[in-house]
Simulated scan of single mutants.
Amino acid sequence: MAGLATSPFTANAATSSYAKEIAQKYILVDTHIDVPYRLEEAYDDVTQATEKGDFDHPRAVAGGLDAPFMSIYIPATLEKEGGGKALADRLIDRVEAMVGRAPDKFALAYSVADIKNNFKLNKISLPMGMENGTAIEGSLDNLAHFYQRGIRYITLAHSLSNHISDSSYSEDRPWQGLSPFGKKLITEMNNIGIMIDISHVSDQAFYQAVELSKVPVIASHSSLRYFTPGFERNMSDDMLLALKKNGGVVQINFGSSFVTEEANKYRDKVKSHVTQFMTDKGIADKKDAAAIAFEKAYKEKDPFPFASTADVVDHIDRAVKITGIDHVGIGSDYDGVGDSLPTGLKDVSTFPNLIQELLDRKYSEADIEKLMGANVLRVWQQVEDYAEKH
């Protein structure tokens, strides 16, 4: 995105003009932003400035964001209820409508070449990734359909195990990793040119996917388990080493509960205190007015412990230490983690704050370019090149 943005920039006072220049100079790719489902729940015109949410065009321009992957999010409950494919098509329609309303601001992107071309045209690319393979509905024809519609990565599962893969969140692990269809799907995704996203899957499924894939995989919005012990949704050090061997990238999630143990355990701590209060008072219904009042008072006394920009960069630091500079990137989860975003990184205008923290830690401009997007574009290009030959 050539030239510095003129729209308001939510920056820390210490953020330098150099950090802002870097944000504008190189292609900045964020592999997970939940705009389509946000609009499904409450419509907003993100081609203009919006009061709600974490993303809109002016803020994206201000932050230097060039290629936000629009997340085509499919709730895990639709695995049993049905309707996943229909919802996916509707959310893709929403992304296409964004471009249709503002073709001077946004452009669809189906390839790495599209990203680079749109960047030269000062347009924000809107590539798409599907969060939860439930929408495939067991059909390789549907895989081809979604490729034609622009899906370029698929998160194999979400918060519940599905017909493709076990989930990191689910106690139910029917497949002990990937299902027979899931294993076949890996091969077909390789052949058609869709990146395999291992965020959300169980450890077993991760290792099986890496073993089966002929090309690098991505973790589109995951952070490191080292900082959140016991939180399987994040990646362990051994998984990072396997990802490095595979050639893939981990895209760091900004959500505070992904970043610090204190934030990660906060919800359980609140629930424990509320449960104890209800037991002491003989209250059975959590919707009881006294229980609700107690929870509100507790949160006011002990508010949610937001992570910081520095905490996020701690994850980047450790991932780089383990995998090297070529295997780390950004997958913020903006519009997907509610109000849990770290101080200094509250919306898409704030990427220069992240860049400033990297500069303060002596990352070179070339290294920052890799973290901003060059690494994941390298993986995407490898996936494209493999598919062309198969």
Rank of each mutant, 00 (worst) to 15 (best):
A284V: 14
V274L: 06
K301C: 02
Y207P: 10
E295N: 14
L371N: 08
Y266R: 01
G133P: 08
A387T: 11
E262W: 11
P36D: 07
F304H: 02
D203E: 14
A387E: 01
Q24M: 12
S349P: 13
T187V: 13
G230S: 05
D333L: 01
M372I: 00
G53P: 09
D237T: 01
A319C: 09
M130S: 11
I124P: 02
H57R: 14
M130H: 09
N253H: 09
F227G: 05
E41S: 15
M235A: 01
A23M: 00
V210L: 07
S168Q: 00
N190V: 02
K269G: 08
Y26T: 03
P342M: 02
A19F: 07
I72T: 13
N375F: 06
I92E: 04
G82W: 08
Y334E: 04
D385R: 09
Q208D: 04
G63Q: 01
M130T: 06
A60V: 14
H273S: 14
S125W: 03
G129S: 06
F206D: 14
S17C: 07
V348R: 05
R101T: 10
K116W: 05
A2F: 14
V328S: 01
E369T: 10
F119C: 12
G248T: 01
F304N: 11
G230F: 13
I115C: 02
G331C: 07
V250K: 08
Y43V: 11
L371I: 09
I27F: 03
N162L: 07
Y334Q: 06
Q148N: 15
A219H: 10
L156V: 02
L126V: 09
A219C: 12
E51G: 14
S139L: 01
F231E: 08
E369G: 01
F146W: 02
G129D: 00
D238I: 03
T260D: 07
L39D: 13
V379C: 03
D93A: 00
Y226D: 08
A88M: 05
P216A: 02
T275A: 11
Y266K: 00
I198D: 08
I33Q: 08
Y26G: 06
Q276P: 10
S139H: 03
N12W: 09
A5H: 14
V112F: 02
S364M: 12
G3Y: 15
W380P: 11
N142Y: 03
R378S: 13
G82L: 11
M130C: 01
Y298A: 04
L160P: 13
G248Y: 05
A60R: 07
V249D: 00
N191R: 05
D104Y: 11
E388T: 03
S257E: 15
G129L: 10
S111N: 06
A387F: 10
Y18E: 07
G177E: 12
D238M: 00
F306E: 01
A62F: 05
A62V: 11
D114L: 00
